[in-house]
Design a protein around this nucleic acid. Structure first.
Lengths: 234, 234
DNA sequence: CGGGGCCTTGAGTCACTTCAAGACGGGTGG
DNA sequence: CCACCCGTCTTGAAGTGACTCAAGGCCCCG
């Protein structure tokens, strides 16, 4: 995590997610209203008329698309500081639900537009944020397209370690805030396959389940190596 | 394809890919230099120092990432008018190669930055483009996570029909410009699985292979219904 | 014509899914 | 405080779709 101040100097090349300056964040927050959402509460549904952009102040949110037969794909998890409200032709493209009790800000799209149109800095921040989301989505594509379920789970655990509120680097303990079904739908697998993957990872000594939600990663390095993932290519 | 003029009024909600105004496009082109790339030629590699942004004037380009074991995932195809050059910490995150002979523009990132910093309209256009890419990537995620190979191939054919230079709506003939291996790596499958999927789609009357690359879609509607985001036929 | 990619097909194997049952664990009410 | 209960998670067994390996066919190009 580097300083946002000059990170934004490099469009489509920032290291970080949260890069609007504090002043811009302040400006956004003033333009909107705060509200909270209980676990499993719906923020909006795929197909609803899009009226707001959202900032997640605290909590975790899942973005999903439903299939005709009721199958669901989670396209992303959103963490504190993330922004969402992606729409097309005036309708939201994903359904958004809280994974746990969460606090959010909602900004009317019209107000947002006005600010973006006259503020290059803000608009650039948006572009960089979107580019960051895009990189994440591409990582997800790589995961779904090339890895077996056991490796997908390994990668997912590592992704979760990026969230400071979930992972204690000192102890190596990761708290999984979501149900197995959410993990499964995110990873394009079944809950059974996820459970079996965790069992095998544990048998191979790469993780240890303290409780169902608390997982010890004795050696994240080894786990990353197992997942066959080079964050920085050679 | 609607007019770009007011489509950009709706950030994160545009219908279209190509939305910088002609004036902006002109400005970008003047800032860069044109070059061409032969089929299967490399434009840049994952991990290279990122120095330029690219505009694809004519042709088709594939963006891919490699795993440690040498497996490849195509994260997207880029068509005429698309922009690319996604980087992180000063390094490109994907490898870009031409699928067929292509003509491109290359703009130094420094020049691009300068323009973005002082031009809200341009920066907003960037944000919207990135949001469009993001929606596409999420569709890809849905495809990889939930559909069997036969349906993935069906969806892919339909995606290709969006490109006017590939699909003749009147005759229903689609020209596939890429090899089976590219399709397979894009769809997270093997060439064999793709070949079998095409064979089954043909047996079911949803497509007809005129040659290996030219495919007749007698009823795109029916194909869409088949691929419609459902794992099991309804 | 002949060679070499590229594509398709076949047979066997394996990973994941499906279906079914049991184990855990947090929350509630007695 | 305990017992129960229900949602969640894990495990087992059987079925299946996709992968691997191997061979053959197509077609462009020399």
């Amino acid at each position: 995590m580097t300083e946002p101040s000059e990170a934004s100097a490099s469009p489509f090349g920032c290291d970080i997610a949260k890069l609007l300056t504090p002043a811009k964040q302040e400006q956004l927050l003033r333009a909107g209203t705060q509200f909270s959402c209980a676990a499993d509460g719906t923020i909006y549904r795929e197909g609803d008329a899009a009226g707001h952009l959202y900032l997640l102040d605290r909590g975790i949110v899942r973005a999903s698309r439903l299939l005709l037969d009721g199958n669901r794909q989670l396209v992303s998890f959103l963490w504190s500081g993330d922004m969402f409200g992606l729409s097309e032709a005036g309708r939201y493209v994903n359904s958004l639900e809280a994974v746990c009790d969460s606090v959010l800000h909602r900004i009317p799209i019209a107000a947002m537009e006005a600010m973006l149109r006259e503020d290059a800095q803000l608009a650039l921040g948006f572009a960089i944020r979107a580019a960051h989301e895009l990189r994440t989505a591409q990582g997800h594509i790589l995961c779904l397209g090339q890895l077996d379920v056991q490796r997908r789970v390994a990668r997912f655990l590592l992704d979760c370690t990026e969230q400071p509120e979930l992972f204690d680097r000192a102890s190596g303990v990761l708290i999984l805030p979501m149900k197995r079904l959410d993990m499964a739908d995110y990873l394009g697998a079944t809950v059974e396959a996820v459970a079996r993957a965790l069992t095998r990872l544990e048998r191979e000594g790469l993780i240890r389940r303290l409780t169902r939600r608390d997982i010890l990663l004795p050696d994240p390095e080894a786990l990353g190596c197992y997942a066959g993932w080079a964050r920085q290519p050679i």
